[in-house]
Amino acid sequence: MTMSAATQNAFAIGLFSTTPPPSSLTAWNGTALERRYSVYRNNIIASLTEALVSRFPAALNIVGPDFFRAMAQAFIRLHPPRSPLLLAYGDDFPDFVAGFEPARELAYLPDVMRLEVARGRAYHAEEAVPLEARTLADVEPHRLRTLIFKPHPSLSVISSPYPVATIWAMNSGGRPLAALDDWLGEDILVVRPRMTVEMSGLPPGGAAFFRHLAAGVNLAGAADAVQHAEARFDLSANLAILLRSGAFTAFSQGTSDENRHDA
């Protein structure tokens, strides 16, 4: 390693530790450099903490700023960013929180944060024009079975055993903080059909239905799979959400239909 490379290496390693500043450094007025070097240490941890604060404001409200910042800093030390694109930094923060002992009692917190990640991804996703409902109205009935839908680039489906969308809304200014009498799981479709990130609560079986369709399973195949697993599945209600949400941008005719015999 050359001298300058070694200097840089020592500077970088010291930033995440509490050891004395590297010996290669100087100042005009003396040899005590702790505060000067700490400006850089503080800039890094403070700016990355701020990055996580801005991505997870609902989680910040839920646990409060002191706890959130301490938790964020534990994450930053273990998982510093690998890219200068901070808009994607913290995608794996919810997984970290799920295993973070001091937050263990807030079992719903990681899923609220996964919803925040999905919203952030949708916000920055590629533009695409959602499917227009009337184009589907024109499809001949016997061709419906094998339709394959193209997911909107911003689409995510979040499933949780907790009422995460409700908790998120209460902590994002969307609705007042109130007692949650129905502590039921929620499935949420996240999509940004135009400029605003939108969320739709999904009825029973909806999450699986949209996941199948997004994975390229044809319409009959997706409906069949869900109907077998979920008796309350309402195809019509889910199709209405499909058309209204903008979750898909196009459809194509699949080439084969293994289930043709009962058509």
């Binding site: 300058s4 970088a12 510093p80 690998r82």
Partner: peptide, 22 residues
């Protein structure tokens, strides 16, 4: 300035020594 080292992004504008090499 520099802000990345060994694949980690440090999110600050860090100083460098001024030598022929740098």
């Amino acid at each position: 300035a520099w802000s990345s080292h060994d694949g980690v992004f440090l999110n600050d504008l860090l100083p460098l020594p001024y030598t022929r090499e740098t």
